[in-house]
Design a protein around this nucleic acid. Structure first.
Lengths: 100, 100
DNA sequence: CCCTGTTTTCGACAATGTCGAAATTGCGGC
DNA sequence: GCCGCAATTTCGACATTGTCGAAAACAGGG
């Protein structure tokens, strides 16, 4: 069971956003920084599935002006471990690789 | 259409191995360097699907001692582009991220 | 109370990841 | 020549991840 590519990106967006990590913000951060354009529903299912695996956790927060209540996400320690492990594997594979 | 995680790892194993990039060798390189243990068949389907998308190409090579003919793989220019793009997105997302 | 904008949930389907089991092929021995 | 052996590739099936259209839930204002 290893992290999919989008899962990693979503997790990174979550840590980048800190407290403000909820659906729409994550979608925007993904587009802005990674150039990856996905719908907010896609972000959501990904988060739900990560939570089922204990890699993220979430809390409901009070509604801002003119909208309904949001749910914000964060990484669990297991989430951090998985994310860093994925990064380390990939880094080792890139080591010494040069485009011909 | 963006590269899956295993697809990236397999492509990297392919470039690492150069001329000797065929099924079993790729499987071993993945285990050795990335610590990712998958069956040879898994590597194969991945390669076939990448080839369908024009990201890798393959050639049949004469049989070595005591075995049947092999098929060796390499990246196409489009493959390189996709791989480097995936890396760049991920790197940008990691920028400035520190574990709390 | 109904409309409007924001956010979450449902339901469906495509792409990727994974492997057990079968088929193919070259070699060495009987 | 036929037989089994070892290495390699192909088939078929299923789990997980990626993707979104459309629907439901809420909060505030007219």
């Amino acid at each position: 069971m290893s992290l999919g590519e989008l899962q990693q990106l979503v997790m990174l967006a979550v840590v980048r956003l800190g407290d403000g990590a909820y659906g729409a913000a994550i979608r925007d951060e993904l587009a802005r920084v990674a150039g990856r354009r996905v719908s907010v529903q896609t972000v959501w299912v990904t988060l739900v599935r990560l939570e089922e695996q204990g890699l993220t956790a979430s809390t409901e927060v009070a509604a801002p002006e003119g909208g309904r209540a949001r749910r914000t996400f964060r990484l669990t320690p297991a989430g951090w471990r998985a994310l860093e492990e994925a990064r380390a594997s990939m880094a080792r594979m890139w080591e010494g690789v040069v485009r011909p």
